[in-house]
């Protein structure tokens, strides 16, 4: 009996080995190395001089104004993009969840930006939002609004990135909401109609509660993704102006990759990784408690 188990185990591990080796090399090992390097002054160009420096990196991080600024920026981004993107997605799904001529066209139109990669949307909007020759300011001027600086203003840049990100992502989440809406049996609405409920009451008391599992799932995935913001600022603003769009992952990239300060970047990875972990944990706890 035990013999069979051992044979089965060998077979199982041979099936697992390619995935385990790759995940070990490119996920588990980097986690362990980040924790280890965080306590060293590893500079990629002089690997032999690597020394253990204790908590020095961590002390420097909490005093690093750019890192603190990047945390503030990404928090602002998360707080704005979640309601804007998820709200738009839900609104679009409700608009489309109806029999009408030409509905497929609208659905495809709302979904279209999802097909573009983050690099493509970033470059495209960089041109559209150009303060002097971009199409957006030309249109704004037509309707009597002064041209805006958008990405070139420290006050507007992060909100502009919020808009561009939500513009791209809303269509995908609209489809998920739509699937959730179509799972609600029409008999539920008919019953409440008999009870004399109006459309608004239906929405608050039936649609929203039944969409809750879908919403929670969307919230958690959007939240985690939003924290890792890097490509839009990297392509559109290089973190500027005045670090107003610098994000933690982008700063980690700059110090670790451009400046080759592996030790310092690793310490930021550890700190930021723990922060994301805590936020995710709280979020999933809160949404689970809401359920009961």
């Amino acid at each position: 009996m035990k013999n069979i188990n051992v044979r089965e185990s060998i077979a199982a591990y041979s099936f697992l080995s390619p995935a385990l080796i790759l995940l070990g090399l490119f996920l588990l090992l980097p986690v362990l190395m980040a924790i280890y390097y965080a306590f060293t002054d590893y500079y990629l160009l002089t690997p032999d001089n690597r020394q253990f420096v204790g908590l020095e990196n961590f002390i420097a991080i909490i005093k690093d104004p750019i890192f603190l600024q990047s945390l503030k920026n990404v928090a602002l981004f998360v707080v704005c993009v979640i309601p804007v993107q998820i709200g738009s997605a839900l609104g679009l799904a409700l608009l489309i969840n109806k029999q009408r001529r030409g509905n497929l066209f609208f659905k495809v139109a709302f979904f279209a930006p999802v097909v573009l990669s983050l690099v493509v949307i970033s470059v495209l909007w960089l041109y559209l939002l150009n303060p002097s020759e971009g199409l957006i300011n030309v249109i704004l001027e037509r309707v009597g609004i002064n041209p805006q600086p958008f990405l070139t203003s420290p006050d507007q840049a992060i909100y502009t990135i919020v808009f561009v990100s939500a513009w791209q992502g809303a269509g995908y989440q609209m489809l998920i909401f739509l699937a959730g809406l179509q799972n609600i049996p029409s008999s539920v609405y008919e019953a409440s109609k008999m009870d004399g409920a109006n459309k608004w009451q239906n929405f608050i008391h039936i649609t929203l509660p039944l969409l809750k599992p879908t919403s929670i799932l969307i919230m958690i995935t959007t939240l985690i993704a939003a924290f890792k913001l890097i490509i839009q600022p990297m392509v559109m603003t290089q973190g500027g102006p005045m670090n107003s769009t610098m994000t933690p992952v982008y700063y980690i990239y700059q110090t670790g990759f451009s400046d080759r300060l592996i030790g310092y970047a690793s310490a930021m990875t550890v700190v930021f990784g723990i922060l994301i972990g805590i936020v995710t944990f709280i979020q999933s706890k809160v949404s689970r408690e809401d359920d009961s």
């Binding site: 995940l23 990239y253 690793s266």
Partner: peptide, 27 residues
């Protein structure tokens, strides 16, 4: 398959699922 260490390994991999891979670019 029923194999030695299955539960532990699966738990470990699920834990890796929540590791924010993009923050690990440097290592």
């Amino acid at each position: 398959f029923d194999f030695i260490g299955k539960k532990v390994l699966f738990g470990l991999l699920i834990a890796l699922l929540i590791v924010p891979a993009e923050t690990l670019i440097i290592t």
